[in-house]
């Protein structure tokens, strides 16, 4: 089987079979990173432009490593300091990139829908590496990969997502993916950071973090951006941690084999206590490792690769 779309714009619209295909492919490709020569020729001769309009270290590096391990030629283009400042529109910048005949454009942008716009303009395959608070599909896929690795399944799991749901592309993509795969999702955070009608995404809302983590198989913590406090969504970081920070005491409400996840970068003592981030439940660094295999799988499948990966 193949993916229905030639782009990866979001988890929205993906089927359970497609998600499973990506995760299975990632599993086969994961071993490439454990070899002495960490490279396969799958994307040899193909060009990938990493077009990051919003700053990112983790995601961009992860994509770049994935591309290189597939033997693609990569170019990093971060126009925050060049053309977009000179008044060029996103569409025109994209047309210029397109003129270099890349096979893929991996795009990170602060505005929801920016990758969808590129997909309408460009011949290249577009991969969404995060569009504002909208979606971050490869993050959700790598979270799912990690979770499946730990739990052996996704269906029937109870997953708590805690924090700034309103501004989180990680939460949106994870909710879509987990619901598609049959997991139960409960979200919790300050009511000022819970978006309206979030229940219509098939999740339940818990007022208190203790309720949310009760019996959870996994807890996904979201990064709190300092800017949110200055816009008044909560009074102080101190109070945020007191009400919604993940401490060992709170983890005790979850299942004993719970896994703690975080998309990074973590704010110690803001959304997560060090004892938890560094504790036995934490799979935060494994998420980073898995990100490479999952992004390799996405590139490989979009390039037309079939089931028998690598």
């Amino acid at each position: 089987m193949k993916l229905a779309s030639r782009h990866l714009l979001g988890i929205e619209g993906m089927t359970a079979d497609e998600i499973t295909l990506i995760l299975d492919t990632a599993e086969s490709l994961a071993q490439v990173s454990r070899r002495e020569v960490k490279k396969v020729p799958a994307l040899r001769g193909q060009t990938v432009i990493n077009f990051f309009v919003e700053p990112s270290t983790r995601t961009r590096s992860s994509f770049e490593v994935a591309e290189k391990r597939l033997s693609a030629d990569t170019l990093n283009f971060s126009p925050s300091t060049s053309s977009l400042v000179k008044g060029e529109t996103l569409a025109d910048t994209a047309r210029n990139l397109e003129a270099m005949a890349p096979d893929f454009i991996v795009v990170r942008h602060s505005e929801p829908g920016a990758p969808h716009m590129l997909a309408k303009i460009c011949q290249s395959a577009i991969i969404n590496a995060g569009d504002g608070p909208h979606e971050h599909p490869t993050q959700a896929l790598l979270d799912a990969f990690t979770l499946r690795q730990k739990k052996g399944r996704l269906g029937g799991l109870r997953v708590a997502i805690i924090g700034d749901i309103l501004h989180s592309r990680v939460a949106r993509s994870n909710i879509l993916l987990l619901r598609t795969m049959g997991a139960e999702v409960v979200v919790s955070g300050p009511p000022t950071l819970l978006p309206r009608e979030i229940e219509r995404q098939g999740v339940s809302v818990a007022r208190r973090i203790e309720e949310a983590v009760e019996g959870a198989d996994a807890i996904m913590m979201l990064r709190i951006q300092l800017e949110r406090q200055t816009r008044g969504f909560f009074p102080t970081l101190r109070e945020y941690f007191r009400l919604y920070g993940l401490t060992a005491e709170r983890v005790a409400h979850a299942r004993s084999d719970v896994v703690i996840m975080h998309p990074g970068p973590i704010n110690r003592g803001v959304e997560i206590a060090s004892e938890v981030a560094d504790g036995p439940w934490s799979v935060i660094l494994e998420q980073v490792t898995n990100g490479i295999a999952v992004r390799m799988a996405v590139l490989y499948l979009l390039a037309g690769g079939g089931e028998e990966a690598a």
Binding site: G113, P133, E197, R200, Q201
Partner: peptide, 13 residues
């Protein structure tokens, strides 16, 4: 509009 669509798209409501 703030509601289902702003939530689904991550746009400011």
């Amino acid at each position: 509009n703030e509601g289902y669509v702003s939530t689904a798209l991550g746009l400011r409501g």
